[in-house]
């Protein structure tokens, strides 16, 4: 249990550093560390597959792309875009709304009945695969459709500018 509290402390600590760092690239590096602590959390929960997928997909791919984009934009203190007061107020308001919603939903959540989670080895690849493809097949496939549509949408947006030239 003390391991959990230590790792949880690290998660929160790095998460605070993400938003308090002045340099965007440093922010991303702290975010990578935060995700790394999440991986450790998954391992502590005996969810090996989730841990390693979090490691590969979030740390190894998505955050590399984040870092890539930030390096291309080359943001620093001098070129930092100055945001207007209205935007700042709107951001604070939006963040507050999100906080209220999250707290409210957590309160109404109550104690769920984790039927499936009673198996302690659920996180192992074999068991997870069986559960996903037997009990949750439809949501699993629907979520893949969602990802596909997002991908098609991104490609469409990226090629939009070229269309006037060809016609």
């Amino acid at each position: 249990m003390s391991t959990f509290y230590f790792i949880a402390f690290l998660s929160v600590f790095f998460a605070i550093l993400v938003i308090s760092a002045r340099n965007p690239v440093h922010s991303i590096l702290y975010l990578i560390l935060t995700f790394f602590t999440f991986t450790i959390h998954y391992i502590l929960l005996n969810a090996q597959f989730l841990a390693v997928v979090n490691f590969i997909v979030y740390m190894g791919a998505i955050l590399v792309l984040f870092l890539y984009t930030l390096m291309l934009m080359n943001l620093n203190k001098e070129s930092e875009p100055v945001k207007s007061t209205i935007v700042k107020i709107a951001a604070v308001f939006g963040g507050g709304c999100l906080l209220v919603t999250v707290v409210a939903s957590l309160k109404t959540l109550g104690t769920s009945n984790p039927v499936v989670l009673q198996n302690p080895n659920l996180g192992l690849v074999k068991n997870l695969g069986k559960v996903l493809f037997n009990e949750f097949l439809l949501p699993f496939e629907v979520s893949s459709l969602l990802l596909l549509s997002a991908m098609v949408g991104a490609v469409l947006l990226a090629t939009k500018d070229k269309q006037p030239k060809t016609t």
Binding site: I32, V52, V53, F55, I56, M59, G60, V64
Partner: peptide, 12 residues
């Protein structure tokens, strides 16, 4: 998958 993860970290 572990190997794959470590490889993907290598770029950092």
């Amino acid at each position: 998958l572990y190997i794959f993860g470590v490889v993907s970290l290598g770029v950092y």
